[in-house]
Design a binder for these strands. Sequence first.
RNA 1: GGUGGGGUGCCAGAGAGGCUGAAUGGGCCGCACUCGAAAUGCGGUAUGCCCGUAAGGGUAUCAGAGGUUCAAAUCCUCUCCCCACCGCCA
Length: 405
Amino acid sequence: MLDINKIRDNKEEVGRSLSKRTTDFDLDEILSIDDKRKELLSKVELLKAKRNKESRQKPTPEAILELKKLGDTIKTLDDQVRQTELSLKEKLSVLPNIVADDVPEGNKENNKVIKVFGKKPEFLGKNHVQLAQDLNLIDYERGAKMSGSGFWVYKDRGAVLEWALLNYFIDFHRKNKYVFLFPPYLLTERSAFTSGHLPKFRDDLYWTQDGLCLDGTSEMMIGNYHRDEILEKLPLKYFAYSACFRKEAGSYRKEERGMVRGHQFNKIEMFQFTHPEKSWEAFEELRKNAEKLIEGLGLHYQTVLLAVQDISFAMAKTIDLEVWIPSMGIYKEVSSISNALDYQARRGNVKFRESGKNDFVHTLNASGLATSRLIPAILEQFQQKDGSVKVPRALHKYTGFKKIK
RNA sequence: GGUGGGGUGCCAGAGAGGCUGAAUGGGCCGCACUCGAAAUGCGGUAUGCCCGUAAGGGUAUCAGAGGUUCAAAUCCUCUCCCCACCGCCA
């Protein structure tokens, strides 16, 4: 949610920023609704002041008659205020976040590669689906039998490898003094609103019959962890593990067979609540952390600065880390690092206190990392001529094996 | 799932229709006393919104949403959460 006062004071600037993302907004309309709100509010509060004053002691019978009429007027005005506030909130909550200045304009094709690590290994021919099946790591068929397409079962060393990745991430974050949260997978509608996933992503989420939804990313949880709180000490650094659930309706493509896009995947997410002046610093820290994790695995990847229209709604800037998937000949996202500025904090009412005043914090999130694309990358990038796969050194202490054959 | 008891400021805890943004205690901050500290005394100590350059004023907020009333922390309805006991249970 954007600050109405900021819109009022910097209309041109905000408008320019928003128009990079969409043309579907009308700041003048929003401001005029706010004007109306203020006007009504002043009016009704004056009347309330009168009523409060006269009701302080028991009024005379005649006065009561008059106050009764006053009460009716107040009620109608109050209704109008409520409606105006509602429509203001509605308009405001579908506005996306403003974007950072250094974000390229346009769509995906303007994404800018800002770093490349390692280089493309020689591709030895087997894709990760074949490898996973040949080496008995993933059971796609039985996964689909149990849960439908888009689900798979990690099996034996495949499960160990998956778990090893998670343990590797967890140890890394703990070493960096991030606090480990293991949140519930189901959350309320209010929480999904705060994280910015509602109203936009309603159809991408799974819903239960009692109105809860499965998390699409643990960011949805951590962002709500401090909802309606005034934070004492900043920054607060967290990381969370959760399974993530996405409908991915209509987005399944043939080349994304295997584990590249599933309805359920594992992800560890870093999250920071920071002072407004420190959020870009934190952004760099998160990015470095995510990069270190992939580099620790020795995978070839690239860091990409996303163009405006490729950034999600609530975020001012996003950098993706994309790992090379040899069989597909493309890079696939394994981490997304974003700064939401105060956008989520406003929705969730998360503040901090400084010299007697409260202000909204900034929130940032970054995958650290999602596993479902790392395993394909590991299998394909590290496959050997004899059909085996080398396990990255960083994982040895967790897997107990160095090679899968 | 059932029954009962709760949810009040930073914390504990009163208040049970009108002068209550809210007693009292603790905490915290300031001042006095002290060489310093403790103890003691005095004062201060919520947030959103609206008007105002400001000082200040107004309004709302006692879990949340509605309602009754001239007037609600206090009465009514619904929802959520916490605690206790009972039932059920992979």
